[in-house]
Design a protein around this nucleic acid. Structure first.
Ligand code: FES
Ligand code: FES
Lengths: 153, 153
DNA sequence: TTCAATTAGCACCAAATTGATACGGTTTTT
DNA sequence: AAAAACCGTATCAATTTGGTGCTAATTGAA
């Protein structure tokens, strides 16, 4: 479906936190702060680090920080980091996985749509998201559920 | 994930067929023609009809036809018909499903992204897709697999 | 030097979604 | 009547996603 996975949703929240409070923060800290599932947060931070969006410091007092200015990070970068290369359909990359592209009548136009989606996400820098984000509400969060999206995903 | 479901992928192929050969065609005919799983094709056509994108004629010699000019049908219409109202995240509609939008720091900016995706798809009329589509290759298709996308979806 | 905090890298499981199928019912033409 | 076709819905298997756990490697500090 055309929907952000929770990974992306959470990831943006985490990036927002690291942007507004640029102190090296540990995965556990952040998870507790936002009442997100701790292991998920850890995994997401690991993936963002692997993609070069964050830098990590190991050991005691370690944690994560933004590696670049958010104006240099695109939505496409985040998506790519968390769920792999964006493909609206499978036949975008690895042309060989689609043995039928010659036959499929809509192959070419769908490629064009794919490219438009990709361009949009590549030009959409996350400073637009993080900049407009609320610096975080320090109220004690309600003790149940997670702070993000609803339940029907 | 941010990917077209097979329903949408197939759906566009079917619409392309109905556009290039505007003769009322039965579900079975089309499925055989494109070597797509017949019951899937039937379901998709039913959904597109329910959404008003196609009109159906029942009984012997019945079938489906486009209900409008493809220039009047948007990609958003097709997506909505086949997988329900588009939501990049759950908290776009039914504000109540997200009890945390007040707390979530990225809620508002993500809404903006959602709206941009939706606008793009609403302005993208499918005549751009169908018009550029190959009128269909009448070669006998290879006898295995389906003509659409690869296997790694 | 030892210990605790913390990231790194997997491997794993359960729930939700998707892809695909099946079947009985209704409408219409022949 | 009978056949062709759509309609509605229910079901099922495969995939993906959401979420968890564990062990190793690294670092700062007591
Ligand atoms: S083969 Fe790629 S869209 Fe059909
Ligand atoms: S509550 Fe909607 S994006 Fe976080």
């Amino acid at each position: 479906m055309l929907k952000f996975s929770k990974k992306i949703d959470y990831g943006l929240i985490l990036l927002s936190k690291l942007h507004h409070e640029p102190v090296s923060a540990s995965a556990r800290e952040i998870a507790a702060r936002y009442r997100l599932p701790a292991p998920m947060v850890a995994n997401i931070l690991k993936q963002l680090t692997g993609a070069g969006i964050l830098v990590s410091t190991r050991g005691a007092q370690g944690g994560y920080e933004l590696a670049h200015d958010p104006a240099d990070i695109s939505l496409a970068d985040v998506v790519r980091a968390l769920e792999g290369e964006f493909s609206l359909v499978d036949c975008t990359t690895a042309e060989n996985t689609c043995q039928y592209s010659e036959l499929c009548p809509t192959h070419d136009p769908i490629q064009a749509v794919h490219r438009k989606f990709l361009d949009f996400m590549s030009e959409y820098k996350i400073d637009e998201i993080l900049g407009a984000a609320k610096p975080f509400n320090t109220h004690p969060a309600p003790s149940l559920g997670n702070p993000s999206i609803g339940k029907t995903q």
